[in-house]
């Protein structure tokens, strides 16, 4: 049965070669540490899915934001779960991306030929933090409001353009409806777009170049690759 469906699609889409190239390729023997990236990826998918679900009820205005979030949390079936997943997922994603990065540093995986992967990774980290910062305001509760007040005020210390930056970030002198909508716009449109772009390149490169092999302790020896020592 499954084979039949498989065949039916294969005849029409010809996806098997792609599957083969992607999935049935060989990669070096890797350790558990290599799962950190895909774990981050999973949480990212989780963020996108739950984030989109949240937008279904969420309204970005000072009048409604809090009420709609509270509605999601308390009245919609599994709303607490979806919000909870998004909330904790944000922290998890920061942690996992951080650990993933540490893994990459430990393995020296940012070296040739994976420099671009590393750069896009850094971009991903920045985008993730930006997600966290903009998302924090959205529930429009006390912690959201005041943490963002203080957070945006930090911009003021930039010499010369500081005050302007502050007004830019807040969309005015004070935190207001304008701040909320622009944070929302960032969180829902701008940052996801950047995220897609960066993760697209990141993943493409991971497949294209191939995942690095765990470095061998013997590498320092002059003979180099000829001396094949089992890791």
């Amino acid at each position: 049965m499954i084979e039949k469906i498989d065949l039916w699609f294969e005849e029409r889409m010809g996806w098997r070669p792609i599957w083969k190239a992607l999935a049935l390729r060989n990669i070096p023997k890797v350790t558990w540490a290599y799962t950190l990236g895909s774990a981050t990826l999973l949480v990212m998918v989780n963020q996108i899915l739950t984030g989109i679900l949240l937008t279904i009820y969420y309204v970005p205005s000072p009048q409604d934001a809090y009420n709609s979030v509270s509605f999601i949390t308390n009245e919609i079936t599994a709303g607490w779960l979806i919000r909870g997943l998004h909330h904790w997922g944000a922290s998890a994603m920061v942690i996992l991306a951080g650990l993933h990065m540490i893994r990459v540093v430990v393995h020296g995986a940012y070296k040739f030929p994976r420099e671009v992967t590393w750069f896009t990774g850094l971009g991903l980290l920045a985008v993730t933090m930006a997600f966290g910062f903009t998302g924090y305001l959205l529930p429009w509760d006390q912690k959201a409001y005041w943490a963002t007040t203080v957070g945006t005020r930090m911009l003021e210390v930039v010499p010369v353009i500081g005050p302007w930056l502050l007004r830019f970030a807040r969309g005015g002198e004070e935190l207001s409806a304008v701040t909320l909508t622009r944070f929302y716009g960032m969180h829902i449109w701008v940052l996801p777009a950047l995220l897609m772009l960066l993760i697209g390149i990141h993943m493409f490169l991971v497949v294209r170049i191939g995942i690095s092999a765990p470095p061998k302790a013997s590498e320092t020896e002059e003979e180099g690759p000829e001396l094949e020592v089992e890791a």
């Binding site: 909870g84 944000a90 957070g151």
Partner: peptide, 29 residues
């Protein structure tokens, strides 16, 4: 693990933002 956090930690929501209440101690994420 995430579901566990969501289940036990909930999705926290504090009081509605009150711009006139300046007593609140802000804590960033």
């Amino acid at each position: 693990v995430l579901i566990g956090f969501a289940y036990f930690g909930g999705a926290p929501l504090e009081e509605r933002a009150d711009p006139s209440d300046a007593d609140y101690t802000p804590r960033p994420e």
